[in-house]
Each structure stands twice: as structure tokens, then as C-alpha cells.
Computed example of a mutant assay.
Amino acid sequence: MITVLAGGVGGSKFIRGLANSVSPSSLVAIVNVGDDEQFYGLHVSPDIDTVTYALAGLSDDERGWGVKGETYNALNMVKTLGDDAWFTLGDQDLGTHLYRTKRLRDGLTLSEVTAEIITSLGVQVRVLPFSDDPVRTKIRGHRYISETDSYETEAELMSFQEYFVKYNHRVKVKELIYEGADTARLSQAVVRSLEDSSKVIIAPSNPLLSIWPMLMTSNFSEILLSRRADVTAVSPIVGGSAVKGPLGDLLADLHGQASACAVAKLYSPYISTFVIDIRDKDQVEAISELGIKCVVTDILMVNREMEIQLAKEVCGLE
């Protein structure tokens, strides 16, 4: 069994590549829930859905999220009725959230509802939220004001989705807060997957937004530390920049620089092997000095073939 820790578009692509490289039933995807939010009374799990849609062949690969061929009739009506409706929810996507919310209200856990959804969509990879308890990533930072071409003087606290979607991550981040992580528990399925897998892989996801909510929760980090020799991470940085999303700015704001080496430093207590892109090969020596084996290859997943190629290379690492 191989366990992958993931969130976001990079994580979903990598897991899809793995599912096309090895038996999908031998894979477990432990997925971030720090981005989860309530919209119009519905429980939305963006990272779980991004991974699920990718594995089910439903994802809109051009945008990187949502369902392909999506329509927005419901959202347009909400806007017509006068709401800002800044968070985009497509009609098919709404169906997923309606179902999830109903089943949660029926008393099921998020893990149980996720299992029902992936089964209904024909997904063979086991997809697990990292916790059934609420963990929410909050951002404290200075919001950009376009009218004055400046940042707010006072830092404000905002939800992840406000930061990421409403303000298009145009925020100078001062602090990340993983609300609820200190009391959230891991399910037995997550614990067993972490402990029993022959290999644990950290996908090329944003470490601060997708992986750190997991590491802040209960005994997740302790289990990963105990498995360090079997843990490999794939860099989300290519050529000194994030492939997608705000990681570059976050690393610069909170850790001084955006680089593969900066990510390696974050992961160094937990991993024995780090896979970086050929465009960052000048950082091999610095990463190796952290006590990590550094592997160089082309990690840019621009099509399905390259997703599979990267997955096969990472799976073949000893």
C-alpha cells in the first residue's frame, strides 16, 4: 500500500498519475480539509473534491478545479437576487455539496460521506480526509487595496477561501493559523494508512496550506517522524516559482525565499528523499546538506503522460 498526502491541483494530478501507474486499490490519498468552508449552508470540501473529480475523470483540467462542462445557473440566480457570490460553485459541483451536507446532517462522518461519494463515482483509490473534526486554515495579513495601490496598515484575520478566492491571495501574510488542529483527532483509517504503508509520499502540494494542517493535528507529525526513512516528498516549486497558487509569495513572506530548498527545510524532519525539478538542480548540494537524498527529474506535469512518468519515477525510488 502507498499513502499520499495531498491537497490542491498538484496533489490531484500526482495522485491521478499514480492511479494510472499502479493498482488504484493499493493507493490511499489522505487529503487536506483545512480549506473546507460553509457556503449557503453547504459543506464544501475543495481539496477532497479536486482529488475525487480528477480520479473520476470529471475534472476541468483547463481551470484545474471543478467539473468539466460545468454550468452556473444556480450561482447566476444567487447573483441576480443580489448576493456577491464571490465563491464559484457550479451546478454539478453543487450536487456534490448538497449530498455531502445532507449525509453529514444524517450523522455520518466526513470520511464515511467521502467513501460514499468516491464509490458512486467509480473511484478505486481510497480517499480519506485527514480528520473528521473541523480544522480550518486562517490567514492573518495585510490585504491589497487596488484603489490606492497599497496594503492595509492593519493586518486582518480571514478565512482561507477569503484569502485565496475573494482577495485572489493579494495579501501580505503575517501568520497562518490552523484553527482546531490542537483538538482534532485522526481517524483509525488515517493512522493505519500512515503506519502500514510501504511508502508515504507527500505530493507536490502547497506545504503551508495543504500539508501543514495535517502535521499540526494530533499525532500526525509523530507518526510521520517515525516513518521518515519511508517518506518521499515531491517539490511544488519549479525553477524557483510555484507552478500554481500562492506558495511563492507565502514562502517569501514567511520564510524569506521561494525555492525548492526552502520547501526541503520545512520537510527535513519528516522526509528522507526529496524530488526536485531539473530547473532547480543547482540546489542539490544545499538540500543534501539537510540530510535528505535529493533526486532530480522533470516534475512539471503538463499532461497525463508526464503525470504517469513522474509517478512511476517516484514510486521506483528506494
Rank of each mutant, 00 (worst) to 15 (best):
V113H: 03
V113Y: 08
E154S: 10
R103E: 10
A115K: 10
N168E: 15
V127S: 04
A115D: 09
R170D: 15
Y163C: 08
S159K: 11
P129F: 07
T148D: 15
K174E: 15
R126D: 02
P134T: 13
F164N: 14
A155E: 07
I145W: 08
Q161K: 11
E175P: 07
S159A: 12
V135Y: 05
K138C: 12
G107W: 01
Y167S: 08
A155K: 02
G107P: 02
E147S: 15
R143T: 11
S111I: 00
I118N: 10
L108Q: 07
F130V: 00
E112P: 00
I145Q: 15
G141S: 09
F160Q: 10
R136I: 02
G141M: 02
R103L: 12
T101F: 09
R103T: 01
E112F: 03
Y167W: 14
Y144N: 07
T153G: 15
R143C: 04
S150L: 08
Q124D: 10
E116W: 00
K172Q: 14
T101A: 11
F160D: 10
R136A: 14
V123Q: 07
V125Y: 01
E112S: 03
R136P: 01
T114K: 09
I117R: 07
T109K: 11
R126K: 12
K174W: 09
R143S: 12
L110T: 04
D149I: 00
E154D: 13
Y167T: 05
K166W: 05
F160M: 09
Y151A: 06
V165T: 15
E162W: 06
F160E: 07
R140N: 09
T153A: 15
V171W: 09
R143G: 08
H169R: 15
D149E: 12
H97P: 02
S120Q: 13
V135N: 06
R103V: 00
E175W: 05
K172T: 12
G107D: 06
L157T: 11
G95I: 00
S159G: 14
R140M: 12
Y163A: 13
V171T: 12
Q161L: 10
Y99H: 12
P129Y: 10
D132G: 07
N168C: 08
H142E: 12
F164H: 14
K138N: 12
E112T: 03
